[in-house]
Design a protein around this nucleic acid. Sequence first.
DNA 1: ACACTCCCCTAGAACATCTAGAGGAGAACG
DNA 2: CGTTCTCCTCTAGATGTTCTAGGGGAGTGT
Lengths: 114, 114
Amino acid sequence: MPEARNDLLPGTLDVLVLKTLAGGKEHGYGIARRIRSTSKDVLRVEEGSLYPALHRMERKGWIRAQWGLSEANRRAKFYSLTRSGRRQLDAETASWNVFSEAVGRVLRARPAEG
Amino acid sequence: MPEARNDLLPGTLDVLVLKTLAGGKEHGYGIARRIRSTSKDVLRVEEGSLYPALHRMERKGWIRAQWGLSEANRRAKFYSLTRSGRRQLDAETASWNVFSEAVGRVLRARPAEG
DNA sequence: ACACTCCCCTAGAACATCTAGAGGAGAACG
DNA sequence: CGTTCTCCTCTAGATGTTCTAGGGGAGTGT
């Protein structure tokens, strides 16, 4: 059984988290679950990547944390987007579009000798 | 004047180089120039990233090097794709497509509360 | 009691990229 | 001829993100 690649392209985690939080506040575990399901199991966020990323983004002021109780009745830290985080989401989404289109352009280019 | 972002997403350089070499042998300097022009100036490969990457890929057997003379009559190291590199290009192109579509799916998803 | 899921966290390794240099050699220009 | 420019290669070290590989606590179900 070939194991699926489960690496994330470095540099894409932040925008994925921000976008997920644009749908409302959510805790880390739930963010990972949402990204995985929305991407149809392609994007798997490791906890060892996610939690440090959340702390980084909180330090940068893009998200805000608040302890609460999850649906499963567990202690959980709910993150929500700040105004600054919303702007960051817009900027990073635009960057992603420009970047991915550029890569696509290169990869689709007809290989021309000479 | 806002400087354009000129970072490359880590993990995309290899496939861009491989694809460029699929068009025929080329030296490092020329590879960088081609990627930049094909991507319409969006993708800028720094020399400090490119040359180590070329050496990595050569060690992995994806590309082969050969000294020669450039069109500008300069000593240049021409790289060409090996059979293994061709396979790598196909695999990485497929991975890129899967990955970028997954990211796109997340970013385009309608933010749904709750 | 036990296993299982949910939920948070960190240290250190691994890795690719960038910054910031160095250097050589042909070409163009005065 | 001397100077500057472009072409072309290269490396060391810093930076930053991700992964691996753990630890731990607490509710739920058996």
